[in-house]
Write a protein that binds this DNA or RNA. Structure first.
Lengths: 246, 246
DNA sequence: CAACTTAACGTACAAATAACGTTTAGTGTT
DNA sequence: AACACTAAACGTTATTTGTACGTTAAGTTG
């Protein structure tokens, strides 16, 4: 009874990345299968995902997918919505691919969607190539297989909402970053402009954002200080906050 | 192929109600089945829920459950989390009940949890009795079957968070209500005290909260004005807000 | 060392919040 | 009808936070 798929259940992952100016999404190529209608050109990319095994934790399935693509364990990841319409697999090509891939007589799949925040790094490129995966700018992603366009939009809506509640930003930025990168991230994700001086004042009030003695490199003007996220101070803060509710 | 259960998938609903002073949850009795261990006294109540049918929308399954219990169609309801641990059915009694109930060799069930906001009304009492259902004050609910205690806690956490974002309050209050009821609702759900005068000022700024010419009845002192929620004005507001993001 | 560019700091005003006090309109009692 | 009682409804002020700008400082390049 090992590694048997539950034919009705899958996980799909929306992996977000940020590269200073753009919010990006990781999509993987969906191979053509024999018998497909070759005239349908949409659906050639999809979100990373698969059916889950009979004894598998949902979170584990998602984690494993993410680890395969990024070789990283420590990723911010969260289940955000279930997509379960009986008719969510519209395209015959998609259904055929799924059946070929799994060798199961699949009709309906309910998928649990996760989103994850990834620090885009150069040394990922090889690994991604091997999985036929690539980063695409969020606004340019369309025509994904299944209902993955919709899943992506919901994931983005969720990210937007969450970012205003908790400091997710540090999961998308490198360890050391400038305040301007941080601002840019907020502007891109929330699709909103911020006054640089006010943004700076506001964000610096956060105790978990700490200055370092490093500075920006290879710029043709005054280099900015680099900051980092202090997870301990954040946890400390959270603990202090929750005391109010005792 | 009609009304065939998917043995791995269910919905569970957390129905919240409010009765002026307390946040309440609707639980239903889980009947004893032959072969049970009668010494186990926990798990005799559960959240409303059931397996879903092969061609059924998740939302429909949840809606139907809610309609059966409240005979109301127009209920604020939202999927909020999936509970899918392979070992989430811990109690042998629970598993046995599930198998007896469904006549299926069930091992693992992934459940999609919904929460819904109900206006508690007197004329519901009969209907609830027929379904062995009853309202319990949130803090007193414990020892539910399956992992329903956990589901309930997550639902409550979710409600708390959502209430600070959108005006869910009107789904829990009767059509006409006093500002004090409204305040009490906020205080109970958010577990936080508010200054009556400041609360009043803040909430009255909301255009969707409108005064009526009705007043509180049967009180032994100056009766308060009754207010109501103006859904149109709220929708209008939402539309205006979203124009900023164009 | 001057010109340039962006980082980093500062100020003034408006709006929102928090912590209070006061008046008013009902009910029930003498 | 005058009174006390109770909670509703309204008001005031100091403080904090947010917004919209102007100014100075520190590095790079030629």
């Amino acid at each position: 009874m090992e590694n048997v798929y539950i034919p009705h259940l899958s996980v799909d992952c929306v992996l977000f990345g940020f590269d200073e100016k753009q919010l990006k999404v990781l999509v993987v190529k969906r191979d053509r299968v024999p018998g497909e209608n070759p005239d349908l050109h949409s659906g050639l990319f999809k979100l990373p995902g698969r059916l889950i095994y009979e004894d598998e934790f949902l979170e584990d399935a998602a984690s494993k997918l993410i680890k395969e693509l990024t070789s990283s364990d420590d990723i911010h990841m969260q289940q955000f919505q279930v997509f379960g319409n009986p008719n969510r697999i519209q395209s015959p090509n998609d259904l055929l691919w799924l059946q070929t891939q799994t060798r199961l007589p699949i009709r309906r799949v309910v998928t649990i969607a996760f989103y994850a925040l990834i620090k885009i790094e150069e040394d990922l490129t090889d690994m991604l190539e091997r999985h036929n995966a690539r980063w695409i700018n969020l606004p340019e992603v369309k025509g994904l297989a299944f209902d993955h366009d919709e899943i992506l939009q919901e994931a983005y809506a969720h990210l937007k909402k969450e970012l205003t509640t908790s400091p997710l930003e540090f999961n998308l930025l490198p360890e050391y970053f400038t305040l301007n990168s941080l601002q840019s991230l907020y502007e891109v994700i929330l699709d909103q402009h911020f006054d640089n001086r006010n943004f700076r004042k506001k964000i610096l009030k956060m105790s978990y954002l700490v200055e370092t003695d490093k500075t920006e490199q290879k710029v043709t003007h005054r280099p900015a200080k680099l900051y980092r996220f202090d997870a301990d101070k954040y946890a400390q803060n959270q603990r202090e906050m929750s005391l109010f509710f005792l």
